[in-house]
Design a protein around this nucleic acid. Structure first.
Length: 934
RNA sequence: AGGCGCGUAGCUCAGCUGGUUAGAGCACCACGUUGACAUCGUGGGGGUCAGCGGUUCAAAUCCGCUCGCGCCUACCA
């Protein structure tokens, strides 16, 4: 038999050899083909053996020189580099990685050269947070080097755990291509990206208000911030007195604002109201005194009784405090609070907006650690803004501020008010706004272009595109990539000590750490200064993660001279870019996906991939997201040990793309059942093939053969179409339904009789059944292979490959998918559907089922032979029945059937069964029970 | 507050470009083991398709509104 192997695979992979897996168990006295298949499937030995053999043989290695690669038929996969916190691994992770891999395996069988690396994200704040919590350290307690060493060690351990699990799970990754986001290659890419954006004028160092996490002591990007819990954040009325020097005859003496942040009152820089708000029409031109700013703390030294010198002091009121103007701004909502709002520096993005628009002063009273800096107000000074005061749900600073406002008579009503604060997604601390020099990538002017890139991508499922559009549309901050942390990619920048002018590293010197390497310039371009200091900040972790497609393609080496000595992972691969598909879950569309699209747009004026596949989450039985913290987490390694990797993958294949999936052990058990069924049915098939020599006997297919062949052609088409749309669950369902219902329950039961000694079937009919069984099994194993790689491979090697001869694909995973990708033609049983045969088969299945119904009603076993089947059918249907008779009688184990006017008359009152809505009904008479042998 | 997804048998989910009697697996009931499979087979019971209204000869499917769950975005002075 000649197998039409796709050319790309032929060059290298046909030379792969696998040891014959079960040869040692074959009984030489029984040369039967079926004997090659042990009675029981033992996944505990089979799965690890294939993990090893696939790995040893290089089956999944990317070959840039293959025929497919040269022809441009490369399918490359950008898969999420998980954080190293391996202890958090749960079946939800296994689910999403499996789902992506189903499609990868499908594409490989379609003849594509696959580039499928794995990455590990061991860079940046998430890792730092993990290390801090695990070792109970923070960046104040250890040196930068000690801390980085801890992070690297955690990274190594985590990556090992991940790789073991992914291999057990059967992911067909090319492990030579593994990257990590802190390795020199990744650092080089991130720094190159930085310098490239500097050259483009996209990268700016600005002293701007920025989002700030007081707990992590670092700046953040908009994407790092999420909505916090709803909570009561009371609204405090605060009276602002009109500055007497601006008072007019008909103006009021004061105005009242409402705020949830009374501690920020001393940072007030303006009051604002809507220009058409009648209530404030007399306020025009007024200035207001900011409460508490008229207080002064006078410190005096005192000598206490024991002679030690301490300090004391008192607060005194001065004549006037700071005054602020009243602004009219249409952005103020007259319906909110009193209609009069306080603008302070800075409470929220709205403040920044007004501060910019009206060029207001800046009064910063919260430091980097979230402590109040208010020297004239000792009750408030140093109080922490994000630490709850003892015995209160409110912070130290807020309580102290309220007390001060009350003491000096400015405090009005306090009203309950439910709202949510913006918090840092890594630590849930409410974010503050600080002002500090930071590096920004200007993005706000690119919204339209980035939306357009989003539209160039094919999204699966399509509705996920809206998550992207929403995010881009609502973007309000340029991307701040500076982080005041230890562990991350350093900026390749020094500053002049005299004038702070930046000096950039040479491209050729990357990767570089400016804290270790000298500044490449001797004198400052701007002022001639000769001493420089390195940039101490590190880059946002997404600065690297956003480059994974470019990192996989080794963008930094595209123009470099070829270096044959470079590790394979580091060699340039421009051909895989843009990549074929990005796979990820939906919650990081705004981060990973968005930033990657932005980077690709800026660096290559292109989308980073053609397709985007978005998966859902693995949920627990109650529908809650799995997480270590929630304690509802299921360890995938345990599931694999108990039920096999194939079974776990089967569960993962049950989720509709983009939808969440609950973890139910029963569903994994369902996978285990399928494996058993597949094993047994293949064993049965082999038992019928001992004498099979393809083409030796001219086949005479029966109605059952023609029916099941046509159905299979249909299933191949349906599964292929589904996989092409990333609908692996639909594909599996089509295959499984056919396999269990049509193939096992009906077809195999029908043909069994054909192989019994002395059956009424001709040699040609037996040959037809053998061909159907063999080619059908071969097709089924290939159809199951993407989802169930282990058992498919084992059965392919045991049952199929030996019969195919020397041309056979060395692995089911590089065997040709039963529909040809280029021609679109199904390569099974001629590839044509036969509607008449399918209609006949449907009738046959109904007839078989009706007889089973009779047997059950008469409490007869399914294998009980029948003496006669009585059949009542309208005259016009009788012609349809004749071609089915042989298969029907065989499946029913009946000696003969005979037409009758009304079945019940001939069946001794036994129950009769209607055959669907065909107008046919049947009745049976069982053959006498044969005497049991003594 | 806006957007997206979901709401179908006891449970988990298909179906949702409108068209016979709404499906599968699990669970449940009954029956059945003389050579693929009891980790099984056969047969069966079980659903006002969240609710209300509309379009249509015909609605689980299309439209509108309401309710519930999840998520995203915004607001949070």
């Amino acid at each position: 038999m000649h197998l039409n192997l796709p050319a790309p695979i032929a060059t290298r992979r046909t030379t792969l050899t696998f040891e014959a897996p079960m040869s040692e168990t074959q009984d030489p006295t029984q040369p039967s083909r079926a004997a090659a298949i042990p009675p029981q499937y033992d996944f505990t030995t089979v799965e690890p053996r294939w993990v090893q053999q696939w790995q040893n043989s290089g089956l999944y290695e990317y070959d840039a020189q293959s025929e497919a690669a040269k022809a441009g038929r490369v399918y490359s996969v950008d898969t999420p580099p998980p954080y190293v916190s391996a202890a958090h691994l749960h079946v939800g992770h296994a689910m999403s990685y499996s789902q992506a891999e189903f499609v990868v395996r499908f594409k490989r069988m379609r003849g594509f050269e696959i580039f499928y690396p794995m990455g590990f994200d061991d860079n940046g704040l998430p890792t730092e947070r993990y290390v801090e919590q695990k070792y109970k350290v923070n960046k104040g307690k250890v040196t930068r080097k000690e801390f980085i060493d801890l992070c690297l060690e955690e990274t190594r351990q985590g990556a090992k755990v991940y790789q073991d699990l992914w291999q057990q799970l059967g992911l067909s990754v090319d492990w030579r291509m593994t990257y990590s986001t802190i390795q020199p290659r990744a650092v080089k890419h991130a720094q190159r990206s930085f310098l490239d954006l500097v050259q483009q004028g996209r990268m700016e160092r600005r002293r701007d208000p920025i989002l700030w996490c007081p707990t992590c002591s670092t700046a953040l990007a908009q994407a790092d911030v999420e909505s916090g819990e709803e909570a009561n954040r009371p609204m405090h009325g605060v009276r602002f007195d009109v500055a007497p020097e601006t008072a007019t005859a008909n103006a009021p003496e004061s105005g009242t604002i409402e705020t949830t942040r009374p501690e920020l009152v001393p940072a007030c820089v303006a009051l604002a109201c809507h220009p058409e708000d009648e209530r404030f029409k007399h306020f025009s031109g007024l200035r207001f005194r900011v409460p508490l700013t008229n207080l002064r703390f006078c410190k005096t030294e005192v000598t206490s009784e024991d002679g030690s010198i301490g300090s004391a002091g008192e607060v005194s009121e001065t004549e006037q405090g700071r005054t602020v103007p009243l602004l009219f701004d249409a952005a103020v909502d007259p319906a909110f609070g009193t209609g009069l709002m306080m603008v302070c520096t800075f409470g929220d993005p709205e403040d920044i907006q007004k501060w910019r628009t009206h060029q207001l002063d800046t009064v910063l009273i919260i430091d980097a650690q979230g402590r109040m800096v208010t020297p004239d107000l000792p009750e408030l000074d140093g109080k922490r803004v994000h630490v709850q005061a003892k015995g209160s749900q409110y912070s130290e600073a807020r309580l102290a501020a309220v007390e001060l406002l009350r003491k000096y008579g400015y405090l009005g009503d306090i009203k309950a008010n439910v709202s949510r604060a913006s918090v840092h997604e890594r630590c849930s601390t409410p974010v503050e706004i600080q002002v500090a020099p930071q590096w920004f990538i200007r993005l706000l002017d690119l919204k339209e272009q980035l939306l357009e890139r989003g539209r160039e991508l094919r999204w699966f499922p399509e509705f996920m595109r809206e998550r992207y559009e929403d995010w881009v549309t609502n973007l309000r901050w340029d991307w701040n990539i500076s982080r005041q942390r230890f562990y991350g990619v350093p900026f390749p920048v020094w500053y002049c000590d005299t004038c702070s002018h930046p000096v950039y590293a040479d491209m050729a010197s990357l990767p570089i750490d400016p804290t270790m390497a000298p500044c490449p310039q001797e004198a400052c371009d701007r002022c001639g200064g000769a001493s420089f200091r390195p940039e101490p900040d590190v880059m946002d972790t997404w600065m690297t993660s956003s480059l994974t497609p470019l990192l996989n393609a080794n963008w930094t080496e595209w123009d470099a001279a070829p270096d044959a000595d470079a590790p394979i992972a580091a060699q340039p691969r421009k051909a895989i870019y843009p990549m074929g598909v990005r796979v990820q879950a939906f919650e990081i569309i705004r981060t990973w996906l968005f930033y990657t699209v932005a980077k690709s747009h800026l660096h290559t004026q292109s989308v980073p991939w053609r397709d985007v596949m978005i998966s859902g989450w693995g949920l627990d039985r109650q529908g809650k997201k799995m997480s270590k913290r929630a304690g509802n987490f299921v360890d995938p390694a345990e599931v694999i040990a108990k039920y096999s990797a194939d079974s776990l993958r089967y569960w993962a294949a049950g989720a509709t793309l983009g939808q969440d999936l609950r973890y139910l052990e029963d569903d994994v058990k369902g996978g285990k059942r399928l494996l058993t069924k597949l094993w047994n049915s293949t064993r049965f098939a082999m038992q019928q093939l001992d004498s099979y020599v393809p083409g030796a006997v001219a086949e005479q297919p029966t109605a059952a053969d023609l029916w099941v062949r046509s159905e299979l052609v249909g299933v191949v088409g349906a599964a292929t179409a589904a996989f092409e749309q990333y609908e692996y669950s639909k594909a599996l369902r089509a295959v499984e339904t056919f396999f269990w219902g049509t193939w096992c329950d009906n077809y195999l039961e029908i043909v069994k009789e054909r192989f019994r000694p002395g059956s009424r079937f001709s040699a040609g009919q037996v040959a037809a059944a053998q061909r159907t069984i063999f080619e059908g099994t071969h097709a089924l194993l290939r159809l199951f292979a993407p989802v169930l790689p282990f058992i498919s491979e084992e059965l392919y090697q045991l049952a199929i490959r030996p019969l195919l001869g020397a041309d056979a694909a060395p692995s089911v995973h590089v065997a040709p998918w039963p529909e040809n990708e280029t021609t679109g033609k199904v390569d099974v049983f001629g590839g044509q559907r036969d509607e008449a045969a399918e209609a006949q088969g449907a009738l046959l299945a109904q007839l078989v089922s009706a007889v089973r119904g009779c047997k059950t009603a008469q409490k007869l076993g399914g294998g009980r032979p029948l003496e006669v089947i009585y059949l009542a059918a309208p005259q016009e249907r009788r012609a349809d029945l004749a071609p089915l008779e042989a298969d029907w009688l065989a499946a029913s184990r009946a000696a003969r059937c005979t037409f009758a006017a009304v079945v019940a008359d001939h069946a001794s009152g036994e129950p009769t069964y209607a055959v669907g809505t065909t107008g046919i009904s049947v009745g049976i008479i069982a053959a006498p029970q044969e005497p049991q042998p003594a």
